[in-house]
């Protein structure tokens, strides 16, 4: 009886460890259990990312509909390329959807905000969003402000 209790306790201990790891993965690191099967990828070119990183949120009207999967520099045109995975359930993004890099709060993380347009056709896997708006960079804003002040 004593060994049975002990073995039960050890088994429960190891199960707790495994469950802990799963909870940690899902709840804390936000690793989603859904696989890549129900997602599609679209691209967007930006002049300045201003701190947007991989795994950043892609949202529409404040609702998260996907994540940034890859960020790299186009070495021919020297613009930043952002690849994002959008949930298949949001498959009705129009061709003239616009993307902007926004900031959550004053010091919060950067995310991409999408706004739909008026076209009839929809973006498919691998398509590119044409209408983009780069991140606001504080130094550039201050620079512009000073410049316009100096001209007055």
């Amino acid at each position: 009886m004593r060994t049975r209790l002990m073995e039960l306790a050890v088994g429960a201990f190891i199960v707790m460890g495994i469950i802990g790891l799963i909870v940690m993965a899902l709840r804390v690191s936000g690793l989603s259990a859904t696989d890549a099967g129900d997602k599609y990828t679209i691209k967007a070119y930006f002049e300045n990312l201003g701190g947007l990183t991989e795994r950043a949120k892609v949202s529409m009207s404040g609702v998260t509909i996907g994540r940034v999967s890859k960020v790299y520099l186009d070495t021919e045109d020297y613009v930043a390329v952002v690849e994002m995975e959008i949930n298949k359930s949001m498959s009705t993004l129009t061709l003239d959807t616009s993307a902007a890099i926004l900031t959550a709060g004053l010091l919060g993380e950067k995310y991409i905000g999408l706004t739909v347009g008026a076209e009839d056709e929809y973006l498919a896997d691998g398509d590119v969003i044409e209408d983009t708006q780069s991140a606001l960079v504080l130094e550039e804003l201050i620079g512009q402000f000073l410049f316009s002040k100096a001209e007055e």
Binding site: L21, M24, R27, V28, S29, G30, L31, A56
Partner: peptide, 15 residues
């Protein structure tokens, strides 16, 4: 609390 945590914790790099 949970949203910012999930956005910044990486499964491999942190856990």
């Amino acid at each position: 609390y949970w949203g910012n945590m999930q956005a910044s914790v990486e499964f491999y790099d942190d856990i």
